[in-house]
């Protein structure tokens, strides 16, 4: 495996050089490390998070997520933090209530940093998500990942949708959600204490 990686990297570098490019972002990102200050336990609260599927927009009044961020420098982006619990309140679609039940066996969900768009913005993903929505004539389980970014200046984890989050087989919710439907989960989780993610 290590030999294959080296061969691929050399080939890619040679290919890039042949194009007059410098070997930069890909390999640099793969090797990037991050500093989290101060790290530790956090609780984030989002107002009005939404789950958008092709046929409907489901929303909740609020959501609270708790977890931890690693502390210190030289940290790998993958798994730089985790979410160990999440809850949703006041969820509905067009006045029809439902509940969101996270699959606790899939905790912790991983927080991963994939790069810095700016000194204030650490881009990344949340992976390992699995949760169900339940209500009258509504049962659907979603699993996958979402994209997002952490904003240092506001201590906010912006969950922006995308990723692989989709409804699993058996999803059946009022005709709105069907198996395989991609879901964009969007919410801004404001942390209860200052955190900063930087990259040297």
């Amino acid at each position: 495996m290590r030999k294959i990686f080296r061969t691929t990297a050399v080939t890619a570098a040679a290919f890039a050089a042949a194009l007059g490019m410098t070997v930069s972002s890909a390999s640099a990102t793969a090797q990037a490390t991050y500093t989290v200050t101060p790290g530790g336990a956090f609780t984030g609260t989002a107002t009005g998070p939404t789950l958008t599927v092709p046929n409907a927009v489901l929303e909740c009044a609020s959501s609270v997520a708790s977890g931890t961020l690693k502390s210190g420098s030289g940290l790998a982006g993958e798994g730089i933090g985790d979410i160990s619990s999440i809850g949703f309140e006041g969820c509905q679609v067009g006045g029809i209530q439902f509940t969101v039940v996270p699959d606790e066996t899939t905790y912790p969900w991983k927080i991963n940093v994939t790069g810095m768009s700016s000194a204030d913005r650490a881009d990344g993903t949340i992976t390992g998500i699995r949760a169900s929505i339940e209500g009258f004539s509504c049962n659907a389980t979603f699993s996958g990942s979402v994209n997002g970014w952490f904003e240092n200046s506001t201590d906010t984890l912006h969950v922006t949708g995308g990723g692989t989050l989709a409804a699993e087989a058996g999803a059946n919710c009022l005709g709105f959600i069907n198996p395989g439907d991609h879901a964009d989960f969007v919410g801004d989780y404001v942390l209860d204490s200052p955190q900063e993610i930087t990259s040297p």
Binding site: T50, N55, A56, V57, V93, G94, G95, I96, F176
Partner: peptide, 17 residues
């Protein structure tokens, strides 16, 4: 659920089923 209207992300919220 024959005709459903939802607001776009980032817009003031509206849902009509």
């Amino acid at each position: 659920n024959k005709h459903n209207v939802f607001s776009a992300i980032g817009s003031p919220r509206y849902a009509l089923i």
